[in-house]
Design a protein around this nucleic acid. Structure first.
Lengths: 221, 221
DNA sequence: TGCCACAGGGAACTGAGTGTCCTCCTGTGG
DNA sequence: CCACAGGAGGACACTCAGTTCCCTGTGGCA
């Protein structure tokens, strides 16, 4: 029944547009009652994203049962791959939906709220793991946003290519950029840690220059 | 008239809640016709964010008239400060609105779409400037998302403190983290004099040795 | 005085979403 | 074979956001 409603809805959406299709049209085509539509989908917009609720639950569960010793950023990167897989499992459906959301502002807003829930799940997970760091919640929010943006970038270029390219490889590449940017300087790696670092910089020296020196000094050991 | 409608709306929203207030209630309190409400605000949600459209225009203009030689990431960081200023200019209003959006899902979704438009402006600006880099669009999207997340982090902690803290300083700190993360690795090793001196000493290195290094570094300039 | 442009109001309409009640279908016990 | 309980689905009416169309007052202009 859910599937019948989704099929009828997309048939009409692609034929005459989202806003030109009423819920009555959908239920008439599916041969069910109007009230039944809202039993399965709380709003007209939900029928466009029928699998996100399940995907969000899967992803939350994946994050929940991660060991305490896992690298949290790596874990979040693995979690976002689950989301991408949901798209790539049904390429034609995902591409059709992309065309719809691209031109209907209401659907774009709905999609944003869904993406925001994913990002919140990332941030909550990272907040728990990075709480010990000085700016833990800030770093958690920023890294979560960066991971989500990398995912969206890879996903959108795949959708624009009509699902032809290798979305997973593109995501890996994008996540590589994010992980490199937020790589933690590996202080506690070795058995003989350097414990004094002094940096003297001229006024106006750019921040990246200082950071570079610190990083290279830490690498030396 | 706009202001009268906003005042009436917030009076009722705070008194009995957003969803328990109809547009008819607002126009009745403001003493105007129902049709006039929708002349000034395209939707009921817009009355909660009466100044975002102007702020978005200001910020877009600020990004548009930036010279080609400006550091693009720095420019975007300056642009996001404009947005924060819009909030901090009316602390009580911003805090009231924050309380509303926190509990009304529909308003949260609307706010997300607004934030998304800011982020898109950042990303578009960065895409134009980073187009020469190999992964220009990816970097633009990720950096834009990180800047927006840093802004939201600083803004939310300020809003949660009822507008008491120093939002601007918090934003500067958050943006510092983002800029450090995305600092461009300086590909060209330049011939210019060293402006950074780093001393790394093992535990137990005598203090005079560290001081000597610092002094000699300071003498150089 | 006649004309026009325009800001605002009023009434009716469309469509999303909800609440209520009814119906049918199915499984179970006598 | 029948009675009945329970749940899924349908019919209907209602609220409210948003739109369309038309009306009215007002002020400028020839």
């Amino acid at each position: 029944m859910r599937d019948a409603l989704v099929a009828a809805a997309f048939h009409l959406f692609l034929e005459r547009g989202y806003e030109q299709t009423t819920v009555d049209d959908i239920v008439a085509l599916a041969g069910v009652g109007r009230r039944s539509f809202f039993r399965y989908f709380p709003s007209k917009e939900d029928v466009v994203f029928p699998d996100h609720e399940r995907c969000l639950a899967d992803m939350t569960a994946f994050l929940a049962d991660s060991g305490d010793d896992d690298e949290p950023v790596q874990r979040v990167c693995d979690a976002v791959r689950i989301v991408l897989r949901m798209y790539t499992e049904n390429p034609t459906f995902s591409v059709q939906r992309y065309r719809l959301t691209k031109k209907v502002p209401g659907l774009r807003a709905y999609e944003l709220s869904v993406v925001w829930r994913y990002e919140r799940a990332f941030a909550d997970h990272l907040r728990g793991r990075l709480a010990s760091r000085p700016d833990g919640t800030l770093q958690a929010d920023v890294i979560a946003a960066a991971v989500a943006a990398a995912h969206n970038n890879a996903l959108r270029s795949w959708l624009r290519s009509d699902g032809q390219g290798d979305a997973s490889a593109a995501l890996d590449h994008a996540l590589g950029y994010v992980q490199q940017a937020f790589a933690t300087p590996p202080a506690p790696d070795d058995e003989e840690p350097e414990d004094v670092v002094v940096v003297v910089s001229r006024r106006g020296a750019p921040l990246w220059r200082v950071v570079q020196e610190i990083e290279s000094a830490l690498e030396q050991n």
